[in-house]
Amino acid sequence: MAKRIDVKDLNIYYGDFLAVEDISMTIEPRSVTALIGPSGCGKSTFLRSLNRMHEVVPGGRVEGSVAVDGQDLYDRGVDPVDVRRQIGMVFQRPNPFPTMSIYDNVVAGVRLSGTRMKRSELDDVVERSLQGANLWNEVKDRLTKPGAGLSGGQQQRLCIARAIAVEPQVLLMDEPCSALDPISTLAIEDLIANLKQEYTIVIVTHNMQQAARVSDFTGFFNIAGTGKPGKLIEMDDTAKIFSTPSVKATEDYISGRFG
């Protein structure tokens, strides 16, 4: 299920504005890759280019290639809708569908895929996904209640359940804890540690301790100034980045001496 991602010479644009320049990196399967860097340096933009979500913004486009197990996502003839079914995403703010029950939220993606499923099969998917998101025990007695009635942390885990219900190959997370309290944050970090047994995970985070705690690899993005494109400064084992980074800017950023 988990797959390797090879990014090569990737430039990402919003219209004429070059937001992210010349990224090349390899993302290993069954591991957590963290992306850190100051705001506005293009972490979200890069993450969204990994499942073609940045094309949702008018004018969003890329040059270069993103290959998942050798298949370029940006090849002519690849449908972005298919790409997104394979590569799931969790957003910064929890966004369950407000008009749907908890149950319907979890199976929303499964229903989209078009495979007709019996009620009992759907029930299994719901239980497995909510177990996987560490939410089952808290909601199993109120699956028909609206998802919007949950706490922020629960909503975010519901969104994770919704994303893993379709068994994606890769899970992208854009600052999934930044709107949550510390307890919920820990719950999600535990969850990420479990999920990496099965999924390739890429997580953007503002929180350096979080990157150090949850990830195996860390990429540091930076920007030369406003209006300049963001770049990948260095990428390495998380332990190496946080102890002996090879670039001065990384060290400055990590030790808080960032200007």
């Binding site: 979500m53 369950p96 895929s113």
Partner: peptide, 29 residues
């Protein structure tokens, strides 16, 4: 319709019409 919800639907692999059926129409009912 909240952009966040529309993006949630698209990120699950909804086509534009599916996204509208999942978010825009229920939201606007």
């Amino acid at each position: 319709t909240p952009r966040l919800n529309q993006e949630a639907a698209l990120a699950l692999g909804a086509t534009r019409w599916e996204m509208i059926r999942m978010t825009v129409l229920p939201f606007g009912r």
